[in-house]
Simulated assay, not measured.
Amino acid sequence: MNEHQLLGASLGSLVGLILALTGAGGGILAVPLLVFGLGLTMTEAAPVGLLAVGLAAWVGALLGLRQGIVRYRAAGFISGIGILMTPLGLWLAHQLPNRPLSFGFALILLYACLRIYRKASHHLQHGQPVARAAFLPCVLNPQVGRLRWTLPCARSLAATGVFAGLLSGLLGVGGGFVIIPALTRYTDLDMKSIVATSLAVIALVSTGSVMAATVSGAMHWAVALPFAAGAVAGLVVGLQAARYLAGPRLQQVFALAGFVAAALMVYKALA
């Protein structure tokens, strides 16, 4: 392994660690690390980041399946629509110059980190998560422990799949910052089930995006494999440390790091 691959593996392990400690939305920092750490363009970094985030998400999703907390029908429905949308996002990414892609990613990163910071601050001040809406289109059937599938529920989950798939192909993000808020807003699932279901969607959508990138020749495997291997190793270590380190304070630190990364993305695009 040469120095470039070793650096990629180290950056990947950082992504896996962030994923384990901050939740499914932590993988959004994969692309900035690839852009600044390895000097890739947005179109080069997106599929590499997706491979790493997708593999790490598979680990979390399989653990959730073992615990019985993944709502696999909802995950399959959302990811099925997302996989259909990823080729469109990938095509758009190759049509747009690097500068607007960087600006777009920076805006998405700012939104995701602002939401994480506000949620963590609310938890620190009030000791409880933000209250949910009075009407939830997707609710669990207590008799069978599964979601009741209604037209409003299917419509809400379908919209989630569209956004997750499009952003996955366009910007190389797993979509946890879209899926987790959507499942929180539209369902009455507890947070453990929401995170596990989100990881299952990320794993499936990322797999579809990686396959599409491979077919189109956009995947740089020499960079992707060490980076992805590092992400999985970092996730495994992070899952062990999460019981001691994870919490709202750490999520605030992650959000602040995301603000800095977004500012650097904008600066590099302008420079």
Rank of each mutant, 00 (worst) to 15 (best):
E3S: 15
G8C: 07
S10T: 14
L11W: 00
L11D: 02
G12D: 00
S13C: 11
S13Q: 02
L14R: 13
L14Y: 12
V15S: 04
I18C: 07
A20N: 06
L21E: 00
T22R: 06
A24L: 04
G26Y: 03
G27T: 11
A30M: 04
P32K: 04
L34F: 08
L34P: 00
L38E: 01
L40K: 08
T41L: 12
E44Y: 03
E44D: 11
A45L: 03
A46S: 09
A46E: 05
A46L: 08
P47E: 00
V53P: 01
V53W: 01
V53Q: 01
L55T: 05
L55P: 01
W58A: 10
L62A: 13
L63M: 14
G64W: 04
G64D: 07
L65W: 12
G68I: 11
G68P: 06
R71L: 12
Y72L: 15
A74L: 10
A75P: 04
F77Y: 13
F77L: 13
I81R: 01
I83K: 02
I83C: 01
L84R: 12
M85W: 07
T86G: 04
P87I: 05
P87R: 10
P87N: 05
G89I: 00
G89R: 01
L90F: 09
W91F: 14
L92M: 15
H94C: 03
Q95M: 14
L96C: 03
P97G: 06
P100C: 09
S102V: 10
S102Y: 09
G104C: 07
A106I: 11
L110F: 14
Y111M: 10
L114Q: 10
R115D: 15
I116V: 15
K119I: 11
K119D: 14
A120R: 05
A120Y: 02
H123E: 11
Q125N: 12
H126K: 12
P129F: 02
A131M: 12
R132H: 08
A134W: 13
P137N: 03
C138Y: 03
C138M: 04
V144I: 14
G145Y: 08
S156E: 12
S156T: 14
A158D: 07
G161F: 01
F163T: 15
L167V: 09
L167I: 09
G172M: 04
G172Q: 06
V173T: 07
G174K: 01
G175I: 03
V178C: 04
V178F: 04
I179E: 05
I180L: 15
L183I: 08
Y186F: 15
Y186A: 10
Y186K: 05
L189P: 04
I194K: 02
V195H: 06
V195T: 10
S198V: 03
A203G: 01
L204N: 06
T207Q: 13
S209E: 02
V210F: 02
V210D: 02
A212P: 01
V223E: 08
A224M: 02
P226F: 00
F227K: 06
A228L: 07
A229P: 06
A229N: 08
G230K: 02
G230P: 01
L235D: 01
V237Q: 03
L239K: 13
L239C: 08
L239P: 03
Q240C: 12
A242W: 06
A242T: 08
Y244V: 14
A246Q: 07
P248V: 12
R249E: 15
Q252I: 02
F259E: 04
V260Y: 15
A262L: 05
A263T: 09
L264Y: 10
L270C: 13
L270T: 14
A271T: 15
